[in-house]
Design a protein around this nucleic acid. Structure first.
Lengths: 338, 338
DNA sequence: AATATTTACGGAAACGTTTCCGTGAATTTG
DNA sequence: CAAATTCACGGAAACGTTTCCGTAAATATT
């Protein structure tokens, strides 16, 4: 039950600790013969360097943090898969945190991360909150940050990876208009989600430029699904829109349920389009027309950008830039002309 | 740009390093007055203890690893959410690894984890492989392990959290039989997935006991989706089963596509049931009857069991036990009598 | 009042690694 | 052949904590 560490290897081989360490790291100042002996014993004993010791000494942890709201939809699952592809290839490890949309929790996570727990942070904000001092804490400690999807529009000096939410919202709205919709409603999540604002702006601008619809029609969802169900039902019955643009897939799903409940036929009575990464969108009844974000790609790109920052020697060059990836419109029967 | 660590706090307060450390850990041998001063300065400077130093000294990392095949389906997303709920409440951190079904990768992950990187491991196996020496490595180092869902049936001395796959498979098969199916096919994934075997045994036993069907009908899926699509299509055309039992949701989805392609009506011509945690199962066309595993619960339970092991003082007591949670049958139109 | 105990804190070792600095021996250079 | 350089390795410091051991003063005990 002997601990196998460098000291043990050194004693076993009659070498100094420093020699063993250098041999393991393939240093040029160690002879081939010695290296071979060290490697052989290390492999035989299944030696793995203690990460805490390496981290403490070298101030490198080989870990990055991924901080996201949650994983209830397929979007973040795909993003993480993209991130994992990159971290895996770089020999890095992923620490995963869920904020559950709670800003306080986000602040608390970031503070814990700011003291040498990770080499970098990938963040999708819990909510639009102009209080960004916790992110400043990261910068002060020299820990690189890349934001993705739910980014801050007020924060300037940080790398952001997003998709073309504004343009896609215009495309989606125009798609409904082209399908013959005269009264289009927009289903929005809680107001202070950053992407939400931009998407709604696309909806509003598209309406103004391409539709004769007098007034925009916006419904903000509640936190509770049942509550949202009821208010959406009321809205559909009262306003009788003929097109629905859901800003997230959960709202589209609720919309399907409401329509079934009040016997509205999709797409005959009302057409539905939604931002969504649902893999089963094409199997829904009817198949859902979606704006699909390149989620996996966003994850890959964000991770790559983060590693650029981590490996940057010259900390002074502030080459921040926004990366914007394109979403795709995938047509389903939910917006078909009939 | 001064590093704020314990040494800095001590100097600032004219105290010894050891005193500050004890004050921060709320030791009883430090006066209330001193504690107050230390806490105040620590808060003011946003001090966070360096995790590498703590980990190195105390041999505790406050991190656990979660090793799963991937996150392409909703099941593992829910499991992780359940795990996160527990780790969050215990002040622990999650390291996430995907094996992508590759046993070699699993071995490599476990080996890296075996040297003080984490306090415990939650594992859902990549594949049924009787080569378990890498897990022995964990035990040798005293790192607790809990397996969930895809567990090994040959490995005895380890805590396992699963759902009642055998019983559920019987329930599913009987459900098809009761709905009038005379020829039921079972769609299986790659042979060496452990749960797959047990589920199939349930299918076989239910057939033998409750159906007059002469021969079981089993189709093993390929790695490639398109390939699976083709072989399933061939099978449906050749064998003309009137019931399909899919062991995982991906196969049910492919089955839906095949049926649409060859104009088989669900549930009139063929009925479909599947193991699945798809949140949109009820919105499919037609709504899918599922055996739904308590995924979130599995995550919670596995994490709780792991913490029991981590916090156990008495390492000798080997109170291994299997925890089996119940799945639910959720009826949809895909198995309706017509 | 003399001794024993508690209180509140300081000093230093230890965790396992990496790397700076040194140093004999071997090799190259002028 | 002497001097300079390279080679191959050893010793020890440093990373930031936690904790064991020690100790002077304060308090409690007999």
């Amino acid at each position: 039950m002997n601990k196998i560490n460098i000291k043990y290897l050194a004693k076993e081989l009659n070498l100094a600790i420093s020699t063993v360490s250098r041999a393991l790291r393939d240093s040029h100042e160690i002879s081939a013969a010695t290296k071979a002996k060290v490697f052989a014993l290390a492999k035989q004993l299944n030696y793995e360097p203690n990460p805490n010791a390496s981290g403490l000494r070298g101030q490198k942890t080989k870990m990055i943090a991924v901080v996201i709201p949650d994983m209830v939809n397929d979007f973040f699952s795909l993003v993480i898969s993209g991130i994992e592809k990159i971290t895996q290839s770089k020999g890095y490890h992923i620490l995963l945190y869920f904020t559950h949309g709670d800003h306080e929790l986000e602040v608390s996570f970031i503070k814990t991360l700011a003291n040498g727990r990770v080499d970098g942070v990938l963040l999708s904000m819990s909510s639009e909150n102009n209080d960004h001092h916790h992110l400043g804490e990261l910068e002060k400690k020299g820990i690189p940050l890349v934001m993705f999807d739910r980014v801050s529009d007020t924060l300037q000096d940080v790398v952001k990876v997003t998709s073309d939410n504004y343009e896609s919202a215009i495309v989606a709205t125009r798609h409904l208009i082209d399908a013959g919709c005269k009264k289009i409603a927009y289903l929005q999540v809680h107001k202070n989600i950053p992407v939400g604002k931009i998407r709604m702006k696309g909806y509003l601008d598209a309406l103004q430029q391409h539709s004769s619809q007098a007034e925009p029609l916006v419904l903000e969802s509640a936190n509770d699904n049942e509550e949202t169900f009821q208010s959406l039902k009321q809205m559909l019955l009262r306003e009788k829109p003929d097109g629905i643009f859901a800003s997230i897939e959960k709202l589209a799903v609720i919309c399907y349920r409401v329509c079934e409940k009040i016997r509205l036929r999709i797409p005959e009575d009302i057409k539905v389009i939604s931002f969504s990464n649902l893999q089963t969108a094409s199997l829904l009844n009817p198949s859902l027309t979606t704006i699909t974000q390149p989620a996996f790609d966003i994850g890959e790109t964000a991770a790559n950008e983060l590693f650029k920052l981590i490996n940057r020697k010259d900390k002074l060059v502030a080459a921040e830039r926004d990366v914007v990836l394109k979403s795709r419109l995938i047509k389903g029967r939910s917006t078909a002309r009939y």
